[in-house]
Design a protein around this nucleic acid. Sequence first.
DNA 1: TTGACATTGTTAGCTTCCTAACTATAATGT
DNA 2: ACATTATAGTTAGGAAGCTAACAATGTCAA
Lengths: 168, 168
Amino acid sequence: MLQLRDLPTPETLHKFAQRYPEADISAISSFLHLLRVATDLSSALDECLQRHGLLQGRWWVLILLMREESLSSMPSTLADKAGVTRATMTGLLDGLERDGLVERIFDAQDRRRVSIRLTTSGQARLDQVMPDYYSRLRLCMAGLDEAQRAQLQAMLGHIASNVDAFTR
Amino acid sequence: MLQLRDLPTPETLHKFAQRYPEADISAISSFLHLLRVATDLSSALDECLQRHGLLQGRWWVLILLMREESLSSMPSTLADKAGVTRATMTGLLDGLERDGLVERIFDAQDRRRVSIRLTTSGQARLDQVMPDYYSRLRLCMAGLDEAQRAQLQAMLGHIASNVDAFTR
DNA sequence: TTGACATTGTTAGCTTCCTAACTATAATGT
DNA sequence: ACATTATAGTTAGGAAGCTAACAATGTCAA
């Protein structure tokens, strides 16, 4: 995703809007601000995770496993839930297995299947990361009270319901 | 950045909050929704750009060049403005130059420097992409009126000013 | 029963991001 | 004047994303 260190000035937006009459200045501005804040949050999250020797993709896989009663799931399910391809998931699991945070268990019934299981070492790593992550997140969102958070989510919902307009 | 196809249910959040008392449920929820919408928007943008044979990183470089009066800039400046390292910018420029959208002009005065210039072909590509992008963006943000957009930006500002709390 | 199809996971090769190290050039201080 | 330091850009190697192709295994219908 774009990093967007340098958002357009009002002058720049105006200049672009002159050349491209399709431009809706406040729409562009809101969109870019949203992406900007999201990427800033994502970078901050990266930094937090790296202190614990994790990267976003791998960390999210651990969380998905911890959500399961059995602490295990299949690569294809994990790929769907994480929003990546199965090929990408293979790579993430390779890394996690190499670090001993996860183990592959081959299914004897259906020999195409593999079960991915969170190891005790993986659980321990999460127990180390999550309190830190949650504490930081609490501080980060402290600027908004409950009502504002609800309002933010409502507005995000309005956008989300129109995202397919972008694609179509 | 994470794709987050599968946000946690209230039950899952509750379960995690029991294990990790640092968790602030509404903070987590708002944070994840924000990331989710941003990544959805980013994917939609990807799809739009790919129809015109562009990728986000390269597209943004073209925009940064078009902002300049001279239609040119330096790799290091572009890297700063795009929020990527100079090494990454080298790679982006390699691709853009190979496609003829940009040209490298070596500085005779200071022989360390290279000037990157948007070619007429690069400008033409932008003229093809931008109206499409702006039209889609307009539709996508149509769910929010001007007041709501201003409100959204204000709330994003509140979060942005606390992002460093995440890092520190 | 066997031929066609579907599913699971992997590999291979590309892009884009990173950090660290390097080359070449310019600027500066003693 | 010359050694040090700073700057500009690149290269090398890694991670994480993609698509496309593939092997192995199951399933199902004729």
